[in-house]
Amino acid sequence: MQVVGGINTGLRKVPAWLVYLAGLGWAAYLFWLGLSNQLGPEPINTLERLYGDVAIKLLILGLAVTPLRKWPGLNLMKFRRAIGLTAFGFVLAHFLVFAILDVQTLERVWTEIVKRPYVTIGMAGFLLLIPLAVTSNNLSVRKLGGAGWRKLHKLTYAAALLGAVHYLWLVKGFQIEPVVYTALIVGLLLTRIKWSRARAVFA
């Protein structure tokens, strides 16, 4: 626990805006790699996947903040908003690469969303994240009230699950990454279940 305490003390000195800066910097760096032909022969698809991959990792990290504080006692609470908003930024970047660079026309974007279940699901997850991104500020917390705000932000659970299904569905054959991400997300959601209450209901 001493180690955790030490980390918590150290983290207190780290400003939350560094998360935004790092996210922005990383997104820009990946784009530059694509621009300068360093993402292989098919940079569009690679960039699309890279942005999506960072997005789901950050969503997982965001979901881990509460359990991490509960059990090892690691306090990342002050970074949670920044982690969530940066995750949204990467989902947005992932969508923009898909729409503008990959599929290229509005008509085709619409067709993809309607016809391909894994795109439909990814899109649903993206749409769920929009109200959360919009209300990720102090003013909204005040306006919605703590309880209302927390209720709304439970949508992240659904969004993360949709992201996992989106990934599972789009790969061909058996691939390990989407399975690991899905397991992590499901595991982190299970920590939210209040077992005492669940037992009372099912007993």
Binding site: L35, N37, P41, P43, I44, L101, D102, Q104
Partner: peptide
Amino acid sequence: RKIGGGLFATR
């Protein structure tokens, strides 16, 4: 999309 057109390759 033909491979090799870079980041702005058209379909």
